[in-house]
Write a protein that binds this DNA or RNA. Structure first.
Lengths: 226, 226
DNA sequence: CACCAAACTCAGCTAATTCTCAGCCAAATG
DNA sequence: CATTTGGCTGAGAATTAGCTGAGTTTGGTG
């Protein structure tokens, strides 16, 4: 899950980034409207958090322009407490949700989750495949009833793979979904993480069938092998 | 599918090349208008992605000159955000579509697909011929309901043949579509790969009819023999 | 500030794939 | 029917993709 935060107050921006990174999102920052628009238009985000008051190009304009460019990434608008009528403006400009400052971080999280909720395959926040279950909310991973401890990156990778069962995902797709765009990650790093996951998910359960498959030349795929 | 990218900003050019290669296109790069024109005129591309602002020869001129030379390869024009009236100029010069920077990669892909869309036989990302189906998105190949594992090159060859059913494709066409132009490939290599494909596609299914045909002196053709 | 876990890189290994080559066979030609 | 030409194929060399153990760097914690 990648999130773009467009917010000129560095203090707020970095605090949000920190919090969301902790929650396992890959976070990019933009500090003015133009920068935000450019990133939003060129990268692939799951959600954009967009402040209303921004230098160069204000939030409403950014929002309208993105929609005009046919970019439909969910947008969560933020506004400072003084800005009274902004709610209306924000929602009319094409934003999907609205949050007034100051807000509790958990409130932000809840809104993000609401915006990124996938209809398919998700019963609440759980994803499952054969006897493997992951809870994307509490980060609990279980196979055959036993808990599995994963690091943040391992979890993010597993979540991404599980969101696309029986689909081949290549290393570049994985890199651009799991890492933010400043990160310059070698394909080998993905191989290493797949190795870590395999050790914990597949090798540790020799009685269950393998779920992580390499498709040489194309990428990786999760699924129950026929 | 071969694509030529004419773009002087190396960063953008290589990023696009990377992305398109990932999508299974063979991509060539040119960094100025003259180089772009020369390649476009001498090689056989499915689409040309042409930046408007280029050193030596600008995009509009390249475009006009190509049309003058009777080269009708679809052209997708790119322009930077500042260039206001360029859309008009671009379309009048003979380009087929227009895309303003910055753009989402998926938008570019969609435009390319629109420009290369074949009316017949393509339902989404699937191609089929008799009881053979390939999914150019997930790389799943099936015949008579059974999965067939192909290597990357084998898949690319099969995809190319399936995109032109009942059409004779000669070895040079195949080479120039499947390999990029730096590669120096013998016609025999194509024969070898056709052999590999036949083994997996035709020989492995003796109860189905042969789909890959040699047309001696001319090339290869896929189709249901009458 | 020392420690530990996590994140990431690197080099070496293995195995699959890519590609070439040489010899063979079949079709076309005269 | 002899000869030439194009295409097929088994064998193997060269290349590349992916895996892994080991090591370095980073970042959080006591």
């Amino acid at each position: 899950m990648r999130i773009l935060i467009v917010e000129d107050e560095h203090k707020i921006a970095t605090a949000l980034k920190k919090g969301l990174t902790q929650e396992n999102y890959a976070v990019d920052l933009a500090f003015d409207g133009q920068e935000g628009f450019d990133l939003a238009a060129s990268e692939d985000y799951s959600v954009i958090i967009l402040d209303l008051m921004l230098p160069v190009l204000d939030g409403v304009t950014v929002c309208k322009n993105l929609r005009k460019e046919n970019i439909h990434t969910p947008i969560l608008m933020l506004t400072a407490k003084g800005e009274v009528e902004d709610r209306v403006i924000g929602l009319n400009s094409g934003a999907d949700d609205y949050l007034a400052k100051p807000f509790a971080f958990s409130e932000l999280l809840a809104r993000i989750k609401a915006l990124t909720r996938r209809p398919k395959n998700t019963i609440g926040h759980k994803l499952s495949l054969a006897d493997l279950t992951i809870d994307t909310n509490s980060y609990v991973v279980q196979r055959a009833g036993k808990n599995i401890a994963l690091s943040r990156k391992e979890f993010a990778l597993l979540e991404y793979l599980m969101l696309h069962p029986n689909t081949i995902l290549n290393k570049d797709q994985i890199i651009s979904h799991i890492w933010d765009y400043e990160a310059d990650i070698l394909p080998n790093t993905v191989e290493v993480y797949v190795g870590y996951l395999r050790k914990k998910i597949d090798a540790a359960f020799p009685r269950s069938s393998k779920l992580i498959h390499t498709v040489r030349g194309f990428g990786y795929k999760m699924g129950v092998k026929k």
